[in-house]
Design a protein around this nucleic acid. Sequence first.
DNA 1: GTGGTCTAGACCACT
DNA 2: GTGGTCTAGACCACA
Lengths: 71, 71, 71, 71
Amino acid sequence: MGEVTERAENAVRQLVGEQLAPGDRLPSERTLVDDLGVSRTTVRLVLLKLSAEGLVRAEHGRGYFVSERPG
Amino acid sequence: MGEVTERAENAVRQLVGEQLAPGDRLPSERTLVDDLGVSRTTVRLVLLKLSAEGLVRAEHGRGYFVSERPG
Amino acid sequence: MGEVTERAENAVRQLVGEQLAPGDRLPSERTLVDDLGVSRTTVRLVLLKLSAEGLVRAEHGRGYFVSERPG
Amino acid sequence: MGEVTERAENAVRQLVGEQLAPGDRLPSERTLVDDLGVSRTTVRLVLLKLSAEGLVRAEHGRGYFVSERPG
DNA sequence: GTGGTCTAGACCACT
DNA sequence: GTGGTCTAGACCACA
């Protein structure tokens, strides 16, 4: 995993862990693209990783949400 | 066609083929939204497809009805 | 215009004149149906009248909004 | 088909017929949203119709292209 | 109170 | 950064 992706991942992890509560919706993919200054591919790579960890959960057409049971 | 739409399509096909008779009225779009747990857009996509096939026919202000000649 | 429609009209007029500001969105047609306890036909009749007066303006798919220049 | 969609359809037809040549790429759906002032749903409805007619062809991840054989 | 049209914006699959 | 799928919910036309 490259340097850019790693920085994006840490930014999203921090957002989820420190600024959001379980059940909260994350910023949209396109908002994260703008805010983090990375490509949509990179954003999705990060979100897919966090989804696999169970930290967040995607709902088609609605958004990403912070999981109730992290892990 | 996506996974969600496909499941909804199968549910409506089964309803039309097994529980309703020619001339019967289908549940309203909004009822199907509740019963199938999908958006109205997805419900309409399915009903439009079945209409194009001639399985059902829409009547503005009245509802959807099972066709007399399926096919 | 019947008694029921008149009561509904007065309720919406009061809402627009006293509780909302120019540019604000009105409650949706279906919300007004529930809140006023009248049919959709009655609600639309009232909103059409207020639109004709220039008090409110409809935007398809978005809602009704209080006009900037009432009248 | 509604009034808004019809206007959008005519605009795209004119673009395809008068300003683009076979093989040319159309503006992206999101660009058309901005240019035509309608929602992406409406844009897609128009493009789906023109695709069904064979006037244009969609390529996933690449864009819409003017067909070689219009019709 | 139904089907028809339209808005706004999300995630997904792909290049 | 495109097209593809899906959500949510608004007003419109009709019965």
